[in-house]
Amino acid sequence: MRRRKTLSDILAGWRMSEGAKEAIKDIIDRSRRNTMVAVGATIIIVMFSLALLAPVLPISDPEEYVDESFQPPSDNRWFGTDELGRDVFSRVIWGTRISLQVAVLAIFFSLLIGIMMGLMAGYFGGKTDYLIAGTIDLFWTFPPFLLALAFAATVAGGSLTAVIIAISISYWAGFARLMRGQALSVRERQFVEASRALGASNIRIMFTHVFPNCLAPLIVWASIGVADAITIESSLSFLGVGTQPPTPSWGYMLFRGLANLQEAPWMSTFPGVVLLITVLGFNLLGDGMRDVLDPRMKGMRR
């Protein structure tokens, strides 16, 4: 019988120093032992697989009327049907696709803006910092959801792109603030001075030395940010300014389900539970990664 490949075998094939391998192995080992990361990552992997595989899964078209209205969950229709006779199970899975797509892209753009602004503010300091930190504070004064709601309701008209932009605009300030604080402390470290003395330019120091040293907290917050973005997207759709019907979206399904809560509770329960589990997954991963990436938690058992 062939022996199963262990982690060490895989790592042994990589071109890296023994110490780096040890560090990676250590992080993976600790992630495995960390229940939060394990559960969170499993949920996220399942959700992403469902989202990616939605078009090839043997499920009905989410926008087609396939059955009678208000059918309760059965062997055939696991999550029942909605008021127009569409398959709720299929709509929840296609909704995963929309939610993750919007959340991941929105957080990607937030990170992009946040990292650039925060890095510049923290690294250069002085007037640049004054301007950028002021802008960050301006955005920070509004709750992200309110800002996204205002933008989605007034400027953009319900396309997916508009929702992504709305969430990015309302969410970047948090990343920028985090990045700025990190950059402020890293720029004082001696290797920054040393690379300057060896002739490196500001841009080079910022991106090759300051940024990689700020990554750990950003990874943690990005994961929690995706959870937030999913919630914001669903809330916008719930209020009718997010993803527009007939595109399946968890938030809109919740809204339609609310109106029919008496006669068809499955219409809102299932999207709600899936939304909850997905958000929980990203939050668990974020929290767990915080512990895993924190060297002070080394050796602790959870």
């Binding site: 120093s17 780096a20 470290r189 001696q190 290797f191 001075e193 040393a194 690379s195 300057r196 003395a197 060896l198 002739g199 490196a200 090759t208 030395h209 990689p212 040293n213 990554l215």
Partner: peptide, 30 residues
């Protein structure tokens, strides 16, 4: 001029190297 004609080394070697890159890439960068 810096690093090429006039170079400098610092007091504390442990904080003068970037902790996230290996020696090869730091030397290679310069």
């Amino acid at each position: 001029i810096r690093g090429r004609r006039i170079s400098m080394i610092f007091q504390d070697p442990s904080s003068s190297l970037d902790p996230v890159f290996n020696i090869g890439s730091q030397l290679g960068e310069v």
